[in-house]
């Protein structure tokens, strides 16, 4: 399995990464046996939660209030896309019923924007490729970081499996393809200015309103 850079894990452990980076790390941590231990090591030396004063105890909301918030926050959608994402990620995202899907091939290859970091314009997408299919050829204009949530895909000579952390450099082009017997769900973080479909799809893409 391939892993995120150590610095990213260190920043995650310190609670210092913005939402799109954080959710990608958490998706990887769910599927990786090694990186959780690294995160624990980084957390080991840092101070824990501070001690509470009487005033903190007094101001604490009642458990019933917190429980009511938990019950309200239960995910409202049971779609396959929502099911493939870990609950901790779903809880940090807008309601799955409102995700905006873009279909890029008639056999069901599609992606949806989940969340965007307004300051860096980095965006997190969930992407689906059915078996025996491919995501149309595209060029990454900014950095791409990708974690496969389920299934696998092939990109050139490289097979990318569940949990793998893949980095695509800006200005690279590829066509991820799936095996005949396996589909692929992945989480992709694209730094601005994102990606552009190659060929006629790219032209069509720019003509259509988004």
């Amino acid at each position: 399995m391939t892993h995120p850079p150590r610095e990213r894990l260190r920043a995650y452990a310190a609670g210092e990464v913005e939402l799109t980076k954080r959710l990608l790390v958490e998706a990887h941590l769910q599927l990786c046996a090694e990186c959780p231990r690294r995160v624990a090591e980084y957390r080991e030396g840092a101070p824990g939660l501070p001690a509470a004063t009487v005033s903190d105890e007094t101001r604490l909301p009642s458990f019933d209030r917190v429980w009511a918030a938990v019950e309200q926050a239960v995910p409202r959608d049971a779609s396959p896309a929502a099911a493939v994402l870990p609950p901790s990620l779903l809880g940090a995202l807008p309601d799955p019923a409102g995700w905006r899907w873009t279909v890029v091939r008639s056999d069901g290859v599609r992606f949806a924007l989940l969340v965007r970091d307004a300051e860096t314009a980095s965006a997190l997408y969930v992407c689906y490729i059915p078996p025996r299919s491919r995501f149309p050829r595209h060029r990454h204009l900014g950095l791409e970081e990708n974690v496969v949530l389920a299934g696998s895909y092939q990109s050139g000579d490289v097979r990318v499996e569940a949990g793998d952390w893949v980095i695509g450099a800006p200005d690279t082009e590829h066509t991820p393809t799936t095996r005949p017997d396996q589909d692929c769900w992945c989480l992709s973080r694209l730094e601005a200015p994102g990606m552009r479909l190659s060929g006629w799809r790219g032209w069509l893409w720019h003509l259509l309103p988004h």
């Binding site: 995650y12 452990a13 609670g15 958490e26 941590l29 769910q30 046996a33 959780p36 231990r37 995160v39 624990a40 957390r43 080991e44 840092a46 824990g48 939660l49 604490l60 909301p61 209030r65 917190v66 918030a69 938990v70 926050a73 870990p86 609950p87 901790s88 779903l90 809880g91 940090a92």
Partner: peptide, 30 residues
């Protein structure tokens, strides 16, 4: 505080002892 504990509830199934002590895990969420 309420948001932190809602996130802890949602994230509990992703917790594993390898991630470190629960207190540190919760601190990361907070």
């Amino acid at each position: 505080v309420q948001d932190v504990f809602v996130a802890a509830w949602q994230g509990a199934d992703g917790y594993r002892p390898e991630l470190g002590e629960p207190e540190r895990w919760l601190l990361g969420i907070a």
